[in-house]
Design a protein around this nucleic acid. Structure first.
Lengths: 331, 331
DNA sequence: CTGTTAGCGCATTCAT
DNA sequence: ATGAATGCGCTAACAG
């Protein structure tokens, strides 16, 4: 491996001068600089970022922890996209770490990023609880921001939308369209996002004086496949409903498939809605009514909190109802 | 920052002993080890991976270069997913770098990963040509594997499928269904993948004695939005066709939207097919006929070439025709 | 403006 | 089995 010393010798200067010529903070005679550049060319020298980082005690990188199984699918791909874009905008490199399948592994992923000396860490938790996250942030010297959880103590270290309220708004809209028998495809049992959306569904129904029918509740696990399975389960129960609200768009599209296989037409026979506003919903036939989650805005905010803490006040993010063709008026 | 020295002092041993206790290659008395572990606990010591990497001259990481604008969308999300999974399977960490918007920036991304001392690099090129990639690989000491290009010299350093042949098979199938007026939505001008698929389309038509009609060719840029625009453009030309083949599934779904808006029913009035076999195609209504690209298999192979070069013979990857509902027989 | 010296935190000789 | 010394490649004082 060719090091800075090789370049220095070839150029007939000291290591320090090469370093200075490269980093440009201190002036180096043009003539010397030229010799150095030529030596770099000849040797094919590439600075060792590792050594540089160690000497500077900084890495210019931000870490992102998400559960591997979730990279797939439009939601997380959009998240990685924005995390990478925004990091680079601040001159930082994004490093991914896998939260895998347990709270412990999510901790391990954070530790890995910490040991890599990332300047800041972004986490979209799946298993770690709010209490655990608060604890981790309390004891961490490097800034950590949590996406999609409302923390108790470190309220400025998180970005999120109010899923329950969003869900209430969605259900209120469905009710306003005349639907009273609204089925709900929940997410994972224990998923805070899923639970909040479910709670919003229940709340909105009760606000309208409707007692939720447990027969109208099925569970999926966020994927399109699971939505399809949930849809079939719902249909097999043979209970009447005029509308299905799925915990996210992916599942909604799975439900649509199940309905169509059963000979139901969308939206004539059954209305359908989801959450997240993923790209496909816009192009699906019928175009999917959904609740937009401003991922771009949230990630931009999260990265700003990490990297420019003084200039970044906490602020709320709002979901937005997107009405398209998949929901029709009834009654 | 708590270092190995703090731990050593607290445990009343030398840095070397702590290091040994941690790495486990050399035996350390159980009793001493216990003291060290306790000291680690008390101090909250986290090894500095940077320093460790520098001392070891290895990083346990593999880099992935792709163009940022492409992270989005199911195709690349699946790629990142598999790259991360397979890397971790080999005990390596995935580091993303952005190829941005030019060949130079793709080079820069590689250089960044090189300077980070990644052990190996994976690149899904967009701007760099085969000749340039061959040149880069020739002069690089760290292994580089190119995804989705057939290299000229470094034939064992790339994984790809034959897009032209796949496309020919697809078009042959469409012809066999009785379609003779088949429109084609190409990708970027100059995209090797897009050009190969287009070439396959032309070849298959000529094989069947049909002269390609330029009126049936439109261009998109891989995104669903661009497919929609291309679809509208095609319809505006007012030329007859019974089938549209899009350069990828995303664009196919955009085309579908355009057709439906024009009052055409799928697949009764127009058949539709794509490439890639993205998740949504399976659930789309009608389910999309497509050509499966074995991304999982290709990435697994690529990572194996990088990390286990001796055990990994080069081999061809095959696309596979997936016939679903969006294409119907005519005539 | 440039050379010399001293670390950054850790792993790894060589001693003992 | 453990300690002391050395070096990984680079940057940052400190001199001149």
């Amino acid at each position: 491996m060719v090091t800075i010393l090789d370049v220095a010798r070839l150029a007939g200067v000291s290591k320090a001068t090469v370093s200075r010529a490269l980093n440009g903070k201190v002036f180096v005679r043009e003539e010397v600089k030229a010799r150095i550049m030529q030596a770099i060319d000849e040797t094919g020298y590439k600075p060792n970022q590792l050594a540089r980082n160690l000497a500077n005690n900084k890495t210019n990188s931000v870490g992102l922890v998400i559960t591997n199984g979730l990279y797939n699918g439009p939601f997380f791909s959009s998240m990685i996209y924005h995390a990478a874009t925004d990091s680079e905008m601040h001159g930082r490199q994004l490093v991914l770490a896998d939260g895998k399948h347990s709270a412990q592994e999510e901790r391990d992923a954070i530790d890995l990023l910490l040991s890599l000396r990332c300047e800041a860490i972004l986490i979209y938790p799946k298993y770690l609880t709010v209490a655990e996250l608060d604890e981790i942030i309390d004891t961490s010297e490097t800034p950590i921001v949590v996406i999609n959880r409302e923390l108790t103590r470190n309220r400025s270290q998180c970005v999120f939308v109010d899923h329950q309220q969003s869900s209430e708004r969605m259900v209120a809209y469905l009710l306003a369209q005349g639907h009273t028998r609204i089925a709900f495809v929940a997410g994972f049992e224990g998923s805070p996002t899923g639970d909040s959306r479910l709670a919003g569904y229940h709340q909105a129904l009760r606000n309208a004086g409707i007692e939720p029918d447990p027969q109208l509740l099925v569970r999926g696990s966020w994927s399109t496949d699971s939505g399809y399975a949930a849809g079939r389960e719902l249909l097999a129960r043979n209970v009447p409903f005029s509308c299905v609200l799925a915990g996210n768009d992916d599942m909604a599209i799975g439900v649509a498939k199940a309905c169509q296989e059963a000979g139901l037409r969308l939206p004539e026979d059954v209305s359908l809605a989801g959450f997240d506003d993923s790209v496909i919903g816009k192009y699906y036939n019928p175009a999917l009514t959904t609740l937009h989650v401003p991922m771009d805005e949230m990630i931009r905010h999260a990265v700003a909190i990490l990297l420019l803490p003084d200039e970044t006040p906490p602020r709320a993010h709002q979901g937005e109802l997107v009405c398209r063709e998949s929901v029709v008026k009834v009654g």
